[in-house]
Structure formats: structure tokens, C-alpha cells
Amino acid sequence: MGALTLSNVTKSFGKTDVIKGVSLEVSEGEFCVFVGPSGCGKSTLLRMIAGLEDVTSGDVILDGARINDLAPAKREIAMVFQTYALYPHLTVRDNMGLALKQAGVARAEIIAATDKAAAMLSLQPLMDRRPAELSGGQRQRVAIGRAIVRRPKLFLFDEPLSNLDAALRVATRIEIARLHRELNATTIYVTHDQVEAMTLADKIVVLRAGLVEQVGRPMDLYNDPDNTFVAGFIGSPQMNFLKSGLLGLSSETVGIRPEHLTLHPGGGQIRGRVNHVERLGGETLVYVTTVQHGMLTVRMFGEHNYDVDADIGVDFDAAHLFHFDAAGKRLR
């Protein structure tokens, strides 16, 4: 229950093509994250799966049935929105139970289902409040509860953590991961934040301008990116890109993760100046300005001291280089 297939789906608003042909398989129970810069069409693609936007061409298939023309309520999906979208005139319990009520489920059953979802999210003390009487974090938990109550084939999340503060974002992220383990339901989760994508996903779909750049498990994307876009998007701080020619290599550009660069005050292959140092306690980030390659980020474990504006050399481990051609495609 809950296997989703997109086969070459496209979406145009008038003359603008927003989704330019996306094919994708999400298997049952999988946690799939759509990630990409803002405006790349993530939400549009999610709304097409939900049935809130019609599909211009291609097929949306859920459990083997084509659902292109099915109304959202008939698709057995549930969605959590960035702005929570709770019904302001209903209590938390009624918010959570509305879908079942619309589907004609008996009252006792609705109460049982909402109680169960409330227990999973510790919402019991809030059941009789209205959304206006809740904090942002509580509202989002209610919205998640509303999705759970329906026991859908497919959970859809559209940037559910974007309106929360940093601490709450981490807490809710952990909660979503736990719920997914408990319910084991197929989930599609949209975010522009690659940390959320890396921490939650079984499978990440990187989108750019309406096209899929790469699909894979988080560590596959991190360790084996297909192109400079994915290499630069996944991982924080960003991968460094160096000009191959200047290093005597045959490719166009080479990428290297900040943790694979080392600093040598006296030597090093690339000379530069320390631009800025960020000490985070557990790790230290040193930003080095070089004449030939622009700014490079070096990441080290523990606490280190470097003087800003000091001359410094940077070395890299050739085994960890990623080679890319002029179009940004990976050379393997």
C-alpha cells in the first residue's frame, strides 16, 4: 500500500513550463525528500501528486492505479503545509477528525482515531483548544496529527518546519522521523534545506528548474554526486570547486569537500590568505582566499587557531577529488 510512480509528468502555467518531465519511483514505506533551491518546482510537483494542480501531461500512479483525474480527497493522501493551515473555527479534535467526518466515519471511531493520534504526538491536553490558542510548534504538531488520523497511503509534507525556530525545527524533525518509523507509511517531504533532506530521507530527489538532477540515498549523493549542482547543493559547508588546469589535471573542474582539505602554514600546493575563522567548538571552519581558485573552505575537527590575514597553504588529498567536465557533468 502506497507505492507511487510518476511517469514523465509535466506542468505548465500558461506558457511557462514549471515541471519539465519528471519520472520517479517511490516504493512502499519509503521516506522520499524533494530538495532543491526555492522556485525549482518542488511544491508544484507535490501539489500535482496531491491532486491540487492538474497534470499537464504524464501519469501519476498510486498502487498501480492512475490517479491523474481523481479528486484530492479520493486519493487517500494526507498533507502537512508550511503554514499549518488549521481550520480556525474548529477545535484541535475537530481539526483532526474532519476528514473522517467528511468520509462518513462513525463518531466513536473518529474519537478513537483522534485520541490515538493525539497520544502519539502528546496533544491530549490541547484537544479542546482552537488553533489561535496554540503556539507555532503546537500548531504544526496538530497539523501532523491531522494527517496521521486519516491513515493515508501517502503522507505529503511541504516545508513543514520552515516557520519554526531552530530548536523546534530539530525537535519536530526528530518527531517526524520517529513517526515514520512507527507508521512505516510512504512519505514525500519537500524542503529547500539539505540538512533536513540528509537527516530524514531514505531517498533524496534533487530538483533544479523543473528537472530531476539526481536520485539516490543521502550518502550516495554525498559521496557520489552526478554533477556540480548536486555536489554543491548536498553537504554543508559547500564543496570547494577548483580549476583543474591550474593543478595539472585533465578535467575542467575538480570538487573537494571541506573536510578533505588540510592547512599548511609553511607549504601546501595552493597558497592563500586566511579570510575568516569560525570556531564552532566541535569543529573549526577556516575560509581561505586564493588568487587562482577564489574562496576555499577548510573544515577541521576540534579547536584550531589561525590568524586572520596570515599567509597559508592549502593541500588536498587527490583520492577525494571529484572530476567534472565543462558542462558540470561528473567524469568517472
Binding site: 501539489r47 479528486a71 494526507a78 498533507m79 493551515a85 491531522r146
Partner: peptide, 20 residues
């Protein structure tokens, strides 16, 4: 988002209009 939440929960367009 609010209107879309209503659609997913199976509210008719009339209910969305009058109640939301």
C-alpha cells in the same frame, strides 16, 4: 494552504467558500 487542506479533507468548494 487552508483551502487546499479543506480540499484534501474532502470539503466541497461550497463548504470551503462558506465555512473557511
Amino acid at each position: 494552504d487552508l483551502k487546499n487542506a479543506g480540499r484534501i479533507d474532502g470539503l466541497s468548494e461550497y463548504t470551503i467558500f462558506f465555512r473557511l
